[in-house]
Amino acid sequence: MAETVSERQIGDVVLDLRNISLAFGGVNALSDISFDVREHEIRAIIGPNGAGKSSMLNVINGVYQPQQGEVVLRGQRFEKMSPGHAARAGIARTFQNIALFKGMSVLDNIMTGRNLKMKSNILQQAVWWGPAQREELAHREKVEEIIDFLEIQHIRKTPVGRLPYGLQKRVDLGRALAMEPSILLLDEPMAGMNIEEKQDMSRFILDVNDQLGTTIVLIEHDMGVVMDISDRIVVLDYGKKIGDDTPDEVRANPEVIAAYLGASH
């Protein structure tokens, strides 16, 4: 896996987070956090439970509005990012507690990811024949490519509510990929998986990063995986940044070790 990392061209900063602070009714979830993400890299965010990792992703794609700080995306400043802006700017994400549309089939779930690229209007769709159908078929082909890539052909017509956890995680990834994002935020993509499922998922993530050149921001608890696949790691603890470096450096950082082992400072 080390080879893939070295072959890629890591580019300029695409996403820059500056002095982000976020509080919920007086409780500080994030205090004054800054870090950047470079093009094509795999950037991991780690930290103990409650460190503010998911909140960080929610700030990046505009689900939460930070009280202070700004998000700079390809040089464009956003004091208030909204989920809609983020999606249009090419940011996709998956969720820690899978947020699939549980009443819909796998195919339909992934098709929703194409939503921004579908242009036919409501009247054309009501008539179906003509532009709406052509568009539907064109996007269906794209979605089938993703289904092939994730190896979930056999369940494409199954309602996602009936799928086991590991497969739901894959569908969640599939829906994000259908957006053809330039930046992909993954919130614990391997939580609750067994070793084989984790290997599959790691392979998918590396393939996406390698073949499509997608920049990836990843939250993960499995240190083995994180150290293996990420280029740089941000470490959060109680809403503060306590480390930001390459995997090897982070491993050696005493503050990080203390946070993980619970030793007193």
Binding site: P83, A87, R93, A99, N115, S120, A126, M179
Partner: peptide, 24 residues
């Protein structure tokens, strides 16, 4: 309508509105 793009948007809002917003 319900089997096309707009129908999927409706159902997405029904099932999980935050996730729907996140995919645009």
């Amino acid at each position: 309508l319900v089997r096309g793009a707009i129908g999927r948007q409706w159902m997405a809002i029904r099932d999980m509105d935050v996730a729907a917003e996140v995919i645009g």
